[in-house]
Amino acid sequence: MKFRYLGNSGLKISEIIYGNWLTHGSQVENETAHACVRAALEHGITSFDTADVYANTKAETVLGEALRNERRESLEVFTKVYWPTGPKGPNDTGLSRKHIMESINGSLKRLQMDYVDLYQAHRYDVETPLEETMQAFADVVRSGKALYIGVSEWPADKIREAHAMASSLGIQLISSQPQYSMLWRVIESEVIPTSEELGLSQIVWSPMAGGILTGKYLPGQPAPAGSRGADESGASTMAHRMTDEVLTAVQNLRPIADGLGCTMGQLAIAWVLANPNVAGALVGASRPEQIVENVKALDITLDSAVLAEIDAAIGHVVTDDPSRVSVPETRIV
């Protein structure tokens, strides 16, 4: 395993981060989830990402059980707050002081931990003053319940505002967690330059574009049985990419991967890690073997010639419009 500093902090995280967004507490049985966590640990992964909203709090519980007997100081554990949880009452969502304080306590109880290394605002909240949110985060840090703070899917201007407030409060905003892949590059023109300037790193999710960059979805053919694309909910979120044009372009990556002696999925992970502002790539797993395969991406080095080949292969289907990272007009519930 290789490690990188998260932002301008002294915290090092594993380049491959185990995330449990769509798996723990929902798609896989707890025994399988525990086996995946054990595989992650055995292959050097020390960083784990979750959120209170995943499986409506169940994912945190499963992860806490899986890590219960591990040395806490040897782990970096991240969670998030924003989306509605529990009975979804009027104060069960957003970034108000009330929701943040109650959510961090709930997350720590489910994780069976005294603190998390990184506490992240899962979205920007247009209905709560940013000053209130940042003061609440500062109090969470000062209480020892979180060591650092981060954001997820925030545009560059909001990251700048939050960073200024965090600095004035004496706390460290060190990370951004956006979607990023060969196909989805909306953070490159604004979020990444702003983050580099302010000392934040990216923790990127969906580096394989929901599995599309593994090459398993073929143009003109139905999604493989048991895949996310074959699942009704998964297919709805992937529909804009599951076009023959995109899937045909992705197949152009196969000879590049073959030339490097890797899978297309490993190529996709190596690609996001080639960006120096990316500290780690989030990967999930429904089987331990997937962890083993993903970690092999760290052995792949992509030089400028290979990166140019990749752009030539799929550049015409890339989404890079920075306006796609935007603040909603109302709170997302």
Rank of each mutant, 00 (worst) to 15 (best):
K2D: 13
K2N: 14
Y5F: 12
Y5V: 04
L6T: 00
L6Q: 03
S14R: 01
S14V: 00
S14K: 00
S14Q: 01
Y18V: 05
Y18T: 08
Y18D: 08
W21V: 11
L22C: 04
N30H: 12
T32G: 06
A35E: 15
A40S: 15
A40Q: 11
H43C: 01
T46Q: 02
S47E: 02
F48L: 06
T50G: 02
A51Q: 06
A51Y: 07
D52N: 11
G64T: 01
G64W: 00
A66F: 00
A66I: 00
R72M: 07
S74A: 15
E76D: 10
V81I: 09
G86N: 15
G89Q: 13
G94Q: 06
S96M: 11
I100S: 12
I104M: 09
L108N: 01
R110H: 09
Y115E: 01
V116F: 09
D117N: 09
L118G: 03
Q120K: 00
Y124T: 01
E127R: 00
T128P: 09
P129F: 10
P129C: 13
L130H: 01
T133F: 07
T133V: 04
M134D: 02
F137G: 01
A138S: 07
V140Q: 05
G144P: 13
K145H: 06
A146H: 07
L147I: 08
L147K: 11
Y148I: 06
W154K: 05
A156W: 05
H163G: 00
S167K: 15
G170D: 05
S175K: 02
Q179N: 06
W184E: 10
W184S: 08
S189I: 07
S189V: 08
E190T: 11
E190A: 08
E197W: 11
E197Q: 15
V204C: 01
W205Q: 00
W205E: 01
P207K: 09
M208N: 08
G210I: 12
G210D: 12
L213Y: 09
L213M: 11
G215C: 04
S227Q: 03
R228V: 10
G229S: 04
D231V: 12
S233L: 12
G234T: 08
G234R: 05
H240V: 09
M242T: 05
E245W: 06
E245K: 13
E245L: 10
V246K: 02
T248G: 13
V250Y: 04
L253A: 12
R254G: 04
D258Y: 02
A270R: 01
L273N: 04
A274Y: 03
N275C: 03
P276D: 12
G280H: 03
G280S: 02
A281T: 02
R287G: 03
P288I: 07
E293P: 06
V295Q: 06
A297C: 05
D299F: 10
D299Q: 13
D311N: 14
G315D: 12
D321I: 11
E329A: 14
